[in-house]
């Protein structure tokens, strides 16, 4: 479903600020795989995700999604195949527009936009049904401005909008990091449900090791632009946070340098 072949990316090459963000990353995901990526700041997690989304072009290597070479495909074209939820709850929705209008925009992945009436009775009913699965009462607020929703509600809406059109790949970029713990567990549970319901191939970046272990069937640990450790489905079942930390120490010969990763439960 997703294949990365020998991806290299260096920022500011040949200057004193040169930073190797990704170094020879090759991986592949089967349909329905759910991989969580952990790593300290600057490990290359976000660069990898941006590479998948098409916001960044690799220096070398290529990206394949669903049997197609998408390396040179610009972000908005590639987005046909990709659903994305951002860290900032404000990023995934348009605040000045209503819930149903936002839902309308997310339909853009599956069809061309017409000069017909935007939200018809039929689509409204469909949106209402979809929103009711979130179980946070958004189905009764179809005409509310999204800017009036709380961060958790907005993130739940973003998640729904990214998934219900069933993209080939779902990218989750620390999508619970900006929420308080109770909202985090709401979003995590929704993520589990929606990914399962639509059988989505998912890539999730997180800072929280427990989350990374709890979710998905695969796990990659990144450091200095490489995937230094990976756990498959079997290995992941009995993985613990201390396991991960000691793995890191064994491989790198030093402690994991991220207080966020350590402190976060």
């Amino acid at each position: 479903m997703l294949q990365l072949n020998n991806i290299h990316k260096t920022f500011y090459p040949n200057t004193p600020d040169e930073r190797r963000a990704l170094h020879d990353v090759s991986q592949s995901l089967e349909p329905g795989d759910f991989v969580t990526i952990i790593g300290s700041n600057g490990a290359g997690k976000s660069t990898l995700l941006n590479m998948l989304a098409g916001t960044l072009l690799p220096d070398e290597g290529d990206v394949w999604i669903d049997g197609k070479d998408v390396t040179a495909l610009p972000e908005e074209k590639r987005a046909k195949l990709i659903g994305r939820v951002f860290q900032n709850p404000l990023s995934g929705t348009a605040p000045g527009m209503t819930i149903e209008e936002n839902m309308m925009i997310s339909l853009g992945r599956t069809k061309r936009r017409s000069l017909f009436k935007g939200v018809t009775k039929k689509t409204r009913e469909r949106f209402r049904e979809l929103l009711s699965t979130l179980e946070i009462g958004l189905e009764n607020r179809l005409n509310s401005k999204v800017g009036l929703l709380s961060g958790g509600e907005r993130q739940a809406l973003s998640l729904l909008m990214a998934t219900f059109t069933e993209p080939k790949i779902l990218l989750l970029d620390e999508h619970t990091a900006a929420l308080d713990p109770s909202k985090q567990s709401l979003i995590i549970n929704l993520t589990k449900d929606l990914v399962k319901k639509h059988k989505l191939t998912t890539v999730m970046v997180t800072h929280q090791m427990e989350q990374a272990i709890d979710l998905g069937n695969r796990l990659w640990m990144m450091d200095e632009g490489s995937i230094i450790f990976e756990a498959n489905e079997e290995r992941k079942k009995d993985l613990t946070v201390p396991d991960l930390l000691s793995e890191f120490e064994n491989i790198r010969g030093r402690r994991m340098a991220s207080d966020r990763a350590l402190l976060a439960k």
């Binding site: 972000e75 908005e76 987005a79 929705t93 309308m104 853009g108 000069l115």
Partner: peptide, 28 residues
């Protein structure tokens, strides 16, 4: 009428949150 068509809604969303509209496969 135009601003409430599919294209019109997308136009308004582009002014509201361009990167979001882009992430839903729209040439903003």
């Amino acid at each position: 009428f135009f601003l409430r068509t599919e294209a019109g809604i997308t136009l308004r969303a582009t002014g509201d949150n361009q990167s979001m509209v882009k992430s839903f496969s729209t040439n903003t």
